[in-house]
Amino acid sequence: MSLLNSALRRLFDLLLLPFQSLPAAVGLVVVSLLAAVGMLWAFKRTSNQAGIEAAKRRIHAGIFEIRLFNDSFRQIWRAQAGILRANLTYLRYSLVPMLFILPPLVFVVAQLQFQYAYAQPAAGDRTVLEATFAPGWEKAGTVPASASGKPRATLELPAGLVAETPALWIPSQRTLSWRLRVEQPGDQTIGIRIGDRLYEKSFDGSRPLERRSPVRPGRSWLDQFVYPAERPLPSDGVLDRVTVDLEPAAVALPGWTVREMAGVPAWMTVFFLLSIVFAFALRRRFGVTF
C-alpha cells in the first residue's frame, strides 16, 4: 500500500504540476475531461452496448405503450412490468463496466482529494495539531511522562507557525493537542519530539494548489488507504497518527463559488458535474450509449 501510494503521489504531483499556479477550476476542467474520456472508453469496451441499447428501447416502448393504451388497466400493468424488467436489465449491463471503472476512479479521487479539498493556510489562521498515541504506549517505557501520566512532548515548529497553547492531554483518547497559529504560510514540517524520537507532519501552504493532507497515517492499513498523501509514520514509534485541521477549499467558477456542502468537498461536486457533462457531450463521438 505504501509503495502504491508513493507511486501515485508522484504521478499526480507530476500530472497536476502545470495547473498549480492556475485557478482550481482550470485543473478540474482538464481532469474531468480526461476522466470522462477514460470512463467512456472503459464503458464502451466493458459493457454490452447492444444489450443496453435494447433495454433502453424496451423502456421507451413501454412508455409509449402506456400512452397509447391508457384506457386499459391490464395493458398499462403489463407495460409497467416490462419497463421494470428492462430497467433491471439495464442496471445489470451498467454494473459490469462500473466494476472496471470504479476501482481506478477511487484511486484518482483519493489523489485529487488531497490536491483540491483543502484550502491554502493563510496568515492568522488557526489549526489544531493532534498526536494520537498507540495503545500501550506507556508500557514501552520510552516516553517520559508527568506524575499525572501525561506524556512529555515538545514541538519543533518552523518559522511561521506558533503554538498558542500548551499541550493538552486527553488520556481516554490518547491524544496530545496544541492550537497553532499561522504567521507565515509555507511548505512547513511540524516536529513533535517525544523522548528521543522526532515525529513529523507536513503543513504545506506555499501555493494555492498543492498536495495537503490532514492526516499522517500510522500502521493502520485503512488509514493508509484513505490518507495516501503522506508516507506513514514509523512503525516502531509510539504514535498512531498525527493530524492537523485544514479548512475546506472552495472552487470558483464563473458566477458560482462552489463550497463544501453536506460533507461533499467543493472540488468533488465540480469534478463529477463536469465529468457527467463531458461524458454526455462526447458519448456520440465515442459511439457509446448509456
Partner: peptide, 27 residues
C-alpha cells in the same frame, strides 16, 4: 476547527448526494 478524520469517507458517500445538491447551486 473541525474534526477532519472522517471527511474523506463522508465525501465519498456524499457523491451520491451531488445530484440532489446541484439544483441549489444556481442562485
Amino acid at each position: 476547527m473541525r474534526r477532519d478524520g472522517h471527511r474523506f469517507r463522508a465525501a465519498a458517500l456524499g457523491v451520491l448526494a451531488i445530484a440532489a445538491v446541484l439544483p441549489l447551486a444556481g442562485c
